[in-house]
Design a protein around this nucleic acid. Structure first.
Lengths: 162, 162
DNA sequence: TGTATAACGAAAAATCATTTCGAAAGGACT
DNA sequence: AGTCCTTTCGAAATGATTTTTCGTTATACA
């Protein structure tokens, strides 16, 4: 991967609807090699998928809640089941195993506080959880799916400045 | 918006590369009305954009850090500048104003702990911040851009069971 | 300097998005 | 029930874009 590939990724992360010909023009290529580069990055798994991003307000999931979970000591069995249960909730859009104080962190999206309570009840009905604490987001100041490309490892050679 | 629209959104959230004809077949429509529904949802802003999602490992941003910030008392000026500074870092992929204990929460992506330290230094060089604490994610168990569509408000009538 | 390899670009072919045109379905009102 | 009106639908034609094909150009290396 070189600077041209990075340029392509930068654009596709923002907007994947451009015609390959237009994208090619932007990065200074003709359509065929540009198309082939995209193809290759899809095969290599650099580009994982292309998706539509929806407006949370319009689909009635404006409220984000961060759920911190401390699990002290638990069996391997419990941890396995815990992960499975949590992953299956569509309201859970992010789920991390953490180092330090908190063991797991979830980002949950729901319409309102009431729905969060309902979600929480459904969650603890499925699996016993010791220490849970919820923090509500008042405002989403930034949310992007664009990963920074400044750390990418390039086969350095080739053209391009940006 | 009815159940058909929801079906369409469900699919487009997963994969926006399908041909409209195929998508139409999946939801039980012919291509023209399906195309028009998509068009309308784009105009209405329900569908915000279409993007490519990249593999964090392949672009060298596998480490996620959650940064909690407490700002006690600060001027309006400071808060404004703080937001601007933070938003401008491409490593910050999510940024929330929170209720409760923590005032702001960031999700930051970087290649490794060392890069995080470098990022942190660049951040505090740009703006003075009182109380910061960082929590590292050991594992990303779930990450999806798919919002749950179960809370969507439908103009209830019409066809479809799912 | 020759050769191999990899990347390029123009143009043709195939696929897909978008428009156009009627037809059908559902509601409201008489 | 019937007519009008509105909305949604679908087949086919058009236009744009993706994908393939083929020949050319650049780059690395002996």
């Amino acid at each position: 991967m070189d600077r041209l590939d990075r340029k392509i990724l930068r654009i596709l992360q923002e907007d994947s609807t451009l015609a390959v010909a237009d994208l090619a023009k932007k990065v200074g290529l003709s359509t065929t090699p540009c198309w082939r580069r995209i193809q290759k990055m899809e095969e290599d798994g650099v580009i994982r998928r292309r998706v539509a991003l929806l407006d949370p307000v319009k689909v009635n999931t404006k409220v984000t809640v961060f759920v911190s979970i401390r699990t002290a000591s638990h069996s391997i069995e419990w941890l396995k089941r815990f992960s499975e249960v949590v992953v299956d909730f569509p309201e859970v859009v992010e789920f991390y195993r953490m180092s330090g104080d908190v063991d797991y962190l979830l980002r949950v999206v729901v319409p309102d506080i009431g729905s969060y309570d309902a979600f929480y009840k459904r969650l603890i009905a499925k699996i016993e959880i010791r220490d849970v604490s919820s923090a509500f987001a008042m405002e989403q100041i930034k949310y992007t799916t664009e990963l920074p490309l400044d750390y990418m490892v390039l086969d350095n050679q080739k053209s391009g400045e940006d």
